[in-house]
Design a protein around this nucleic acid. Sequence first.
DNA 1: CAATGTATTTCGGAG
DNA 2: CTCCGAAGTACATTG
Lengths: 246, 246
Amino acid sequence: MTTADGTPVQSTTHPTAEEAQAIAQRGLDRGAMVTLFGRCTVDYEGRAASTLGPGDRHVMLKPDGSALVHTDEGQQPVNWQPPGCDHEVFLDEGHVVVRSERPAPEEELTVTFEEVTHAASFDVTDPTDLSLTGTEEDLRQRILDDPDLVEPEFTPLSTERNTPAGAVDIYGEDADGRTVVVELKRRRVGPDAVGQVDRYVGALERDLHDDAAIRGILVAPSITDRARELLAEKGMEFVALEPTAE
Amino acid sequence: MTTADGTPVQSTTHPTAEEAQAIAQRGLDRGAMVTLFGRCTVDYEGRAASTLGPGDRHVMLKPDGSALVHTDEGQQPVNWQPPGCDHEVFLDEGHVVVRSERPAPEEELTVTFEEVTHAASFDVTDPTDLSLTGTEEDLRQRILDDPDLVEPEFTPLSTERNTPAGAVDIYGEDADGRTVVVELKRRRVGPDAVGQVDRYVGALERDLHDDAAIRGILVAPSITDRARELLAEKGMEFVALEPTAE
DNA sequence: CAATGTATTTCGGAG
DNA sequence: CTCCGAAGTACATTG
């Protein structure tokens, strides 16, 4: 989606109130991201209530109905509105006013600009299409094509090998000939995945009566802190890998 | 603080990589907020690890060292860096690259732009503080100002009194001189809060060797059915009270 | 729909 | 400094 003239981004510095309102409202109508910067006051009324006196702030309005007000400090927005709100940008006595509200729970955020020094709108091509292309099967293929991605000299022996605890994603050997169980996850893993690998390892150790401990490796794009700790406790490993190559 | 020509905001659409890098780096040097928008990939490595394939994103760099990467969805940034990082914007084989890192814990965020469609810097002055009402502290003040809101002749003796189970919100006496433990919640409470009061009451009874049973009162705007049952079972009470007077 | 648990939680305050 | 708990927590998962 783009503007009438095909430009996916519009930007003006020191616009008049009318220009700023027009850019913002047209951007919202188009489903674009809208940003406004300038001296403003902020009022919130809803689950709690807050007011913010005049100051320079950066306001971002997203097409999914979220709103963010940022100052020059802190990772958190100083005020915000969750997704699902209705954004409205209008003029009130010559001032640009942003109002963002949602019905349940009743919440309303109002930003009143003394002056807008910058207004812009950005058309975003949804990246979810791009990131959802990687399935666990893609990840499996990727590793079978290049086992070194797990670790040097890793050798897959079979996929979907059965154990009393279920089927192992990839079953193989490391450089020293030790049995390796690889569990694949297409996205960030938590403690549940650690338990899963652990059950496979335990089941195989009982099944094979193997003297050497079986190695468990969890392959996923990322891992939670807690899961990483658990994994370390159980002497297992994590390998960061995306389901698809860039 | 402003730019050389006195303009507190600089903005360009469809800049060359060199122009984008120059605006960003000069903005950072000046202590300004910097935003970049365009098609990019994002890599994070630190407490966790993640990568994002190509997509349109909005990158905000703050002078306090925080970095935020937003897509068009969600209130939360899709990637970020906490305050205290060093931001760097440089060119690599014609691409604008943002690198934001901090030493402890070792964390690094890298945004590599295929194309920057918008670059801007904003000089911010924000003198005012946010005032927030409707918090648990407001509820505490409200009761200390008018203890009868809990019940007639209730007398607060101390706040944050320590017990082996943690600090009690308000510790006091009722009309008959019996010890009362008041637990405050700024919003609707569930069974967890009942367990909390119960632990305080138990801990205090053991601590004080009190003959008379200690009373436990849960003060909140409302309570779930299940929590009300539990509270009744344990012989404790609920008082409905908003954190702020209407 | 509500209830539950995690988070690169963030943020503040107490010790 | 760390630990601990609240948050307008946000967010995903599950029943």
